[in-house]
Nucleic acid binder design. Structure first.
Lengths: 167, 167
DNA sequence: GACCTTTTCTTGAATATTGAACTAGATAGA
DNA sequence: TCTATCTAGTTCAATATTCAAGAAAAGGTC
């Protein structure tokens, strides 16, 4: 069989192509759906909402910028811009880090927390209706395994050995 | 059990939460990975590449703007901007539609086709290595079913009854 | 301490995306 | 035909993202 420089076959099989199209289609629609839902109900895109969720789960509702960026899988640059926006909304504030003068903590404000508390049920609802309500328990389990395999494979080298995305 | 206005349970189960995190994590990493790969090897983001692929598969390598936007699941506005950019690169050109003077066809140029031919193997490789090479045949089949269920559920109402994404 | 490298975070410019407003042409009904 | 409405596509302004460059502090090493 014809192979590539990396040893795999050159093209995808028909089934793989069809799965790939379905994957692209579903993930695109899901992201659009949640972006719209959150823009409407919480006034921000999905990724910004995710930042607030991360902060809400951190001890004392605050995190170093770099740690937050790592957890949320975005660049520090993007996070800087995002936090600036969330700060304008009053949902996050920056705080100097006592132990490292270069550092900043992003802190979820009470306003931010309340906003999250208000919008979380609607968001969870959207996720459940779009995904979990439509899948059998076996499919949910299978999806979880598959997504972990993919994430592990794409994870940058040398990442924490304790598989943080399993927490 | 506490339920929402739509009748579902209020929160996700622990397993669902973990699957949802894995889903977000994997899809984010995948999109970033492919965006970088294509930006590096083809000089454009994933979605733009997808537009060229769509055109390459259309009869006479051309499509009405609205049809292309629908197939690629993006807004007409976004498509207008994207085609303007691809036109600058010489990979697409616009052509008036003979049957409807409002209409435009986006046409894949020969240059565009050659660029696609050059970069497709690398892209397919990236997709295979990130996804299919890591999954068992059962997992591939399962992923396909799951993604179709999700896509079908999010599909706007009144869409073509012949499930175009299965083609 | 002096020097070099690394880490942390921000900034600015270029690009991309969104949503609303808009133009031109098509369509349908009187 | 006249008019109202709808559709195709673009444009603008506001927002978001990327990438490269930069400032400031920390961490080595001599």
């Amino acid at each position: 069989m014809t192979t590539t420089s990396t040893g795999g076959p050159l093209w995808l099989t028909d089934e793989e192509q069809s799965v790939w199209r379905a994957y692209l289609h579903a993930t695109t629609l899901m992201e659009d759906h949640l972006d719209r839902q959150l823009q409407r109900d919480a006034g921000m895109p999905h990724i910004y909402y995710g930042l607030l969720v991360h902060l809400s789960q951190a001890p004392r509702r605050r995190m170093r910028m770099t740690e937050l960026a790592k957890d949320a899988k975005i660049t520090r640059s993007r996070l800087s811009h995002a936090v600036a926006r969330l700060e304008k909304n009053g949902w996050v504030r920056r705080e100097e880090c006592p132990s490292d003068k270069r550092g900043q903590n992003a802190v979820l404000t009470d306003e931010g927390f309340e906003m999250l508390a208000r919008s979380a049920p609607g968001h969870v609802d959207a996720v459940r209706h779009a995904m979990f309500a439509r899948l059998t328990p076996d499919q949910v389990a299978s999806l979880g395994e598959i997504m972990q395999v993919i994430a592990t494979g794409l994870q940058p080298e040398g990442v924490d050995a304790d598989l943080p995305w399993l927490r």
